[in-house]
Design a protein around this nucleic acid. Structure first.
Length: 117
DNA sequence: CGAGTGACCGCAA
DNA sequence: ATTGCGGCCACTC
């Protein structure tokens, strides 16, 4: 397997990179889309050692709660998410029910202009 | 090369 | 309903 092998982390990073602004994804979903639904923890590990330039801030757990190891703590994470246009509760929870984004969701169809970053 | 850990998830009492 | 525990895979030292 050398054609589309692309290390697990590379695929995850690619997906995270494609997460549009104002949307969030769950670690489990990223892992599942990557092929290993049980590798949810790995996604978190990659988030810590992967490319810090990626919008890991848009990646939250299945409960919609912010991660704990984010630089600056959940407080900083909350600030960044709010800056992205995502509403965060005082308990550091986001409404994934409305903000959960899927790779097959064509948000560009309804958004003529994409303002990423 | 081996062992430990982790930004999680799911299930059991 | 809440709390606690284990498991799983990949990454790092």
């Amino acid at each position: 397997m050398s054609d589309t092998e692309a290390d697990f982390r590379q695929r995850v990073e690619e997906l995270v990179r494609q997460i549009p602004k104002g949307r969030v994804m769950t670690y489990g979903q990223l892992a599942a889309l990557c092929g290993n639904a049980r590798a949810a923890r790995i996604v978190g590990g990659i988030a810590h050692f992967g490319d810090p330039s990626l919008p890991w801030q848009r990646v939250v757990n299945k409960q919609g709660g912010l991660a704990s190891g984010y630089p600056g703590g959940r407080a900083g994470h909350k600030q960044v998410l709010e800056a992205e246009g995502i509403a965060v509760t005082d308990d550091y929870y986001v409404n994934i029910a409305s903000l959960l984004w899927r790779p097959d969701d064509r948000q560009e169809k309804s958004s003529p202009q994409i303002t990423l970053l």
